[in-house]
């Protein structure tokens, strides 16, 4: 059964003569626990699609459901709550808050939860342990490497255990070794039941997914399912 359902979504920018169709009548279903890679050339609409799925970019036409919730029928504040409960974001440029420590950055999504501070800290520390940078918890983002920043970004995205993880070019700023480590992390998350939707340019990274969606000019050009043996390079390694 579909957990995320996109129905005939279109997104246009600009008006009359200068109109740009970023997404053109896209329909898509993603099951809970799936690992999906979205690929395409620059300007194909990958990031727009991800921001629509992230409840941050209202489509011009169409409907978007997550867990049977009509996401764009929600109010602005309800959408914020929805993002906090259902979605985790991993951004290409990490987007860590520079004046907060690694631990505090990871605690951000749970800042407003009504639980004791010690509990929040222990949740964040456990997540940092899980991604392997617990020893850097007291450092500031500018005091750690790019790979560690990406791990921190992943930790922040999963600290409140959202069912869906949206990753926008998670390896875009990393070398091959760190890319491999981050992809291994995302695979582990997926194996633990999280739905992972990743936008990537990298064919190598896309092979970690169970399904690859190719976008061209705002439309789905091709969809491929990958065999499990090929899809799990961590195990293969």
């Amino acid at each position: 059964m579909s957990f995320l359902k996109i129905e005939s979504i279109s997104k246009t920018y600009g008006e009359s003569d200068s109109i740009v169709h970023a997404l053109d009548d896209i329909s898509l279903s993603i099951k809970l626990g799936e690992f999906v890679a979205i690929m395409g050339e620059s300007g194909a609409g990958k990031s727009t699609l991800l921001s629509v799925m992230g409840a941050m970019n209202t489509p011009t036409l169409g409907k978007y459901y997550v867990d049977d919730i009509d996401v764009y029928a929600l109010s602005t504040e309800q959408k914020a709550d929805f993002r906090r409960e259902y979605l985790g974001f991993v951004f290409q440029s990490f987007h860590l808050i520079p004046y907060l420590t690694i631990l505090e950055n990871v605690m951000l999504p749970i800042t407003n939860l009504k639980i004791p501070k010690s509990k929040k800290e222990s949740m964040a520390m456990q997540t940092l342990e899980w991604v392997g940078i617990d020893s850097k918890s007291k450092r500031l983002p500018n005091q750690i490497s790019g790979g560690e920043k990406e791990r921190c970004a992943v930790a922040r995205a999963i600290v409140n255990a959202p069912p869906v993880l949206l990753a926008d070019e998670p390896t875009g700023n990393l070398d091959s070794r760190n890319s491999k480590d981050v992809m291994a992390l995302l695979t582990r998350l997926n194996n633990n039941g999280a739905t992972v939707i990743m936008v990537t340019h990298s064919t190598k990274c896309a092979t970690y997914a169970q399904r690859i969606i190719q976008l061209r000019d705002g439309s789905i050009a091709k969809e491929n399912s990958i065999s499990s043996e090929k899809q799990d390079p961590v195990k293969a390694a």
Partner: peptide
């Protein structure tokens, strides 16, 4: 970033 990870306007 705050808004993306679920901070409300308030």
């Amino acid at each position: 970033i705050f808004r993306a990870i679920g901070f409300r306007k308030s």
